[in-house]
Amino acid sequence: MGRFGRWAVAVLVTVASFAVPTWLGGALVLPSVLKDAEIRWAVASALGTAVAALVGMWGYRFATRERQNPGPAVQTTGERGVAIGGHNSGPVTTGDTGAGQPPAEAEAGNQTPAALPATPAPGTVTAAGERTIAIGGNNTGTLSTGDQGGNQP
């Protein structure tokens, strides 16, 4: 929604937030309490004004806020790759977690990571290859891309 649309919504909601409590108070709620119509509608208008003032503050903030940046695009390719589009707050591991043997490719020395794109788009986080991690935010956890077991080199 564009800036004009946000302002239109803010104005319509503010007008409605004045009209509805004023009418409800003046026509339905207050007649049983206040018999004089002038006093009843003055009190109802004050109530509507108070509600509209609060909603008007919300409307101003709603109409003038900038669009939220969804964050960078995060992409990883390859076996055991991890892509995190937000903030990481926990352990991330892309290796073996037991006492198993390292992968056959690692023993043979044949690890060749996949090629990264030639020109990544602005705001893009890319990692390619086996056991890669791409994070589009702050890391607060433990990261590991190797084996977690008995046969570590």
Rank of each mutant, 00 (worst) to 15 (best):
M1F: 12
M1K: 11
M1N: 09
M1G: 10
F4T: 09
F4Q: 07
W7L: 08
A8Q: 10
V9R: 06
V9H: 05
A10E: 04
A10L: 07
A10G: 06
A10T: 08
L12K: 02
T14Q: 03
V15G: 01
A16Y: 00
F18G: 03
F18N: 01
A19G: 08
P21C: 07
P21G: 04
P21H: 04
T22Y: 14
T22R: 13
W23R: 14
W23D: 13
G25E: 07
A27S: 13
L28T: 11
L28E: 11
L30G: 00
S32N: 14
V33Q: 08
V33E: 12
V33P: 00
V33Y: 10
L34D: 01
K35N: 10
A37S: 13
I39S: 04
I39W: 12
I39V: 10
R40D: 12
R40I: 10
R40S: 12
A42R: 11
A44M: 03
S45R: 05
S45K: 02
A46F: 14
A46K: 04
L47Q: 02
G48C: 09
A50H: 04
A50E: 10
A50W: 13
V51N: 05
V51A: 05
A53C: 13
A53V: 14
M57H: 13
W58M: 02
W58C: 00
G59N: 03
Y60L: 14
R61H: 11
T64E: 06
R65S: 11
R65T: 11
E66Q: 13
E66D: 11
Q68T: 12
Q68Y: 11
P72Q: 06
V74S: 00
V74M: 01
T76E: 09
T77E: 05
T77R: 14
G78N: 13
G78C: 05
E79V: 01
E79D: 04
E79W: 03
E79H: 11
R80I: 02
G81M: 03
G81D: 06
A83F: 15
A83Y: 05
A83P: 02
A83C: 12
G85M: 06
G85P: 05
G85I: 05
G86C: 08
G86V: 06
H87T: 15
H87E: 14
T93W: 06
T94D: 00
D96F: 02
T97C: 04
A99I: 01
A99R: 14
A99S: 13
G100I: 00
P102A: 09
P102H: 08
P103S: 12
E105P: 01
E105I: 06
A106K: 15
E107W: 11
E107V: 12
Q111D: 14
T112C: 07
T112G: 03
T112V: 15
P113K: 07
P113F: 10
A115R: 13
L116H: 00
P117K: 04
T119N: 14
T119A: 13
A121T: 12
G123T: 13
G123A: 07
V125F: 03
G129V: 01
G129A: 00
E130S: 03
R131Q: 03
R131E: 01
T132Y: 00
A134C: 03
I135Y: 00
G137H: 01
N139T: 15
N139Y: 09
G141Y: 15
L143M: 07
L143R: 11
G146N: 15
D147Q: 06
D147C: 03
Q148Y: 09
Q148G: 04
Q148D: 06
G149H: 07
G149E: 05
G149I: 00
N151F: 05
P153D: 10
P153G: 15
